[in-house]
């Protein structure tokens, strides 16, 4: 077997808004299920750090960005559609 890659995520949220909250939860779940011990999640609240959102070219919240493994992927929404998200992240591998 090939070594399993380590996933890095950054989730842009807007405070406790519903979708944002959902996205956080869903992401946690997903990672815990499919990427145990090989994920990192950073949550950036645009209400607190608007500048970072711009830097990353984020337009809408919640937006998830997978930095690694390449390719970099951007997923917008609350991540409720699990299968879509998994496919987008090329999971399971």
């Amino acid at each position: 077997m090939s070594k399993r890659p380590h996933f890095k995520f950054r989730l842009y949220v807007a405070g406790d808004s519903p979708n944002s909250t959902q996205a956080r939860a869903n992401l946690q779940t997903l990672c815990a299920t499919y990427l145990p011990d090989r994920h990192e999640i950073e949550v950036v609240d645009v209400l607190c750090d608007p500048k970072r959102a711009l830097a990353d070219g984020i337009l809408l919240t919640p937006t998830l960005i997978k930095y690694s493994p390449p390719p970099i992927r951007k997923i917008i929404g609350n991540l409720s559609q699990t299968q879509t998200v998994l496919t987008a992240l090329a999971l399971p591998d």
Binding site: V13, S17, N19, L60, T61, P62, I76, G77
Partner: peptide
């Protein structure tokens, strides 16, 4: 599609 909270 309703899954977005804010626009930057």
């Amino acid at each position: 599609g309703g899954g977005v909270d804010s626009v930057l």
